[in-house]
Design a protein around this nucleic acid. Structure first.
Lengths: 262, 262
DNA sequence: GGTCATAATTTATCATAATAAATTTGGAAA
DNA sequence: TTTCCAAATTTATTATGATAAATTATGACC
């Protein structure tokens, strides 16, 4: 059978009773969303300009503008000035989606072990599925990333940089996932971890053995991916996750108090 | 060690060069975000009122209002009229977070097998971890949900209703997850599947055996969860996932073209 | 003390005008 | 004809002020 593609839906955009409670800008924004969906507009397709919407919806300029800001904040439209300008549909970027989701978890106090529990479930399976399917360019990139830091860090700042590089390696693999949902979740976790401000305890010297094993894991993982050895890739990734988790746990997390922004 | 809690961060809210390009409402919204973060404001804490922000930021009323709409659209603030009203911090609701994330996937054409690949990775592990940890109330609720439909559906509409009930069962389990990230992702998938408009092929009679097995799975799963038999719970859930997947694949998906709304 | 009408407060919406940004157009120069 | 600069045009952006709507606070009254 053909590939069933799936889209979010909610049949009732405006409940008749609730319609009164929602502010007019929100109502207008919802109508525009419906308008986009009905016509199956895609990225780049233009919306009516400001003046047209004012007459179309019978509301004031300010109301229309607030509605557009709502849609813009969600990443659904982009707006330009000048002739041929106006608003047009703009598909939500991955970065923006991660920021918006990050706002949700800002209030949730995720723990490191929460994140690593998920990573251990997802990333080994991902690389198992990916083995033998990566194109040459991706493999070259991954190999380059794996070899980027030939020596252990000599300072906390350098160690943090290496940590971020390692997470970029994982995000790069996630980008190669055919399953966009899987790829997104893994990238999101990498982003959360990247945005953390992590400081090694001062009295704890960098652990050369742990570092060396992490590096070897990456290199062996790329090899396994290239050879198409899924089970090995999975095993390496799982081992790597466990190592990374214990390294993280050996460090102090300075709690980051910032909303994600794109 | 104490539980490391983790928060999203981005160190550079306003890049100096980009600051000029962003519209004033966006800049104001960012400043308010920073204001909230610096003071570590929490849900319910009040923001300055409109008039104060106008003087504070030296912009017009319209600009402030657009900024508030941006923050409101992201679920970060709520606004009320009247004395004692104004804007206050409001933590992003799960529903809103799912809607915003749904907007991202609206353009991505996820496939059913993408979703089920994820479900098979996550849900069996979740119930394995949850076995023996659920409180009595949750178990009662789950058992009630599992027994809700004692007979196979006699019409496509009834079948769809049963399908939605089944997904609510899974969402209820996800809500019990200690790991909020894991729970969110599972709930999100349940929501996507719930919002689908699914119609059984007309020439294909409801399959009583498949239905019966799905129902038995739910009941046995609750038993295993109560007894604390993690491995069995995992096995049941995996089998259930596979059954659900094949049932979904045996149906026609009317592609749902709608944005999620809260 | 409870209830109801009224006042006060705050956001919500509207209307209008001026400003700024971006693109197109027109014309002069090569 | 082509190139390039400047004016005109289109569109969003910002600003200001006035009015409406919603909510809470107040106080008179029973």
């Amino acid at each position: 059978m053909t590939k069933n593609t799936v889209r979010p839906i909610s049949p009732k955009i405006s409940d008749a009773p609730r319609a009164q409670k929602r502010s007019r800008p929100v109502q207008v924004a919802d109508q525009i969303k419906r308008w986009v969906v009905e016509r199956d507009l895609r990225k780049g397709d233009k919306l009516p300009n400001e003046a047209a919407m004012i007459t179309q919806f019978g509301v004031s300029k300010g109301t229309v503008r607030e509605a557009m800001r709502i849609l813009e904040a969600q990443g659904l439209i982009v707006t330009k000035t000048g002739p041929g300008g106006g608003s047009s549909v703009g598909e939500v970027s991955k970065d923006r989606a991660m920021s918006l989701l990050g706002n949700y978890f800002y209030f949730k106090d995720l723990s490191l072990s929460d994140i690593y529990q998920m990573r251990k479930m997802l990333e080994p399976e991902l690389v198992a599925h990916l083995a033998g399917k990566l194109d040459a360019e991706t493999l070259v990139t991954l190999r380059e990333m794996a070899h980027r830091h030939p020596e252990p860090a000599r300072s906390p700042e350098e160690e943090k940089q290496q940590h971020i590089s390692s997470l970029a390696f994982h995000a790069r693999i996630a980008d190669a996932a055919e399953n966009e949902l899987l790829g997104f979740v893994i990238s999101f976790m990498a982003r959360i971890l990247t945005d953390l401000t992590v400081y090694r305890r001062l009295y704890e010297a960098p652990n050369r053995e742990l570092w060396e094993r992490g590096r070897r894991h990456q290199i062996e993982l790329v090899d396994a991916l290239e050879r198409g050895d899924g089970p090995l890739a999975r095993a390496i990734m799982l081992s790597h996750m466990e190592g990374a988790e214990s390294m993280m746990n050996a460090q102090e997390i300075r709690i980051a108090r910032e909303f994600m922004v794109e």
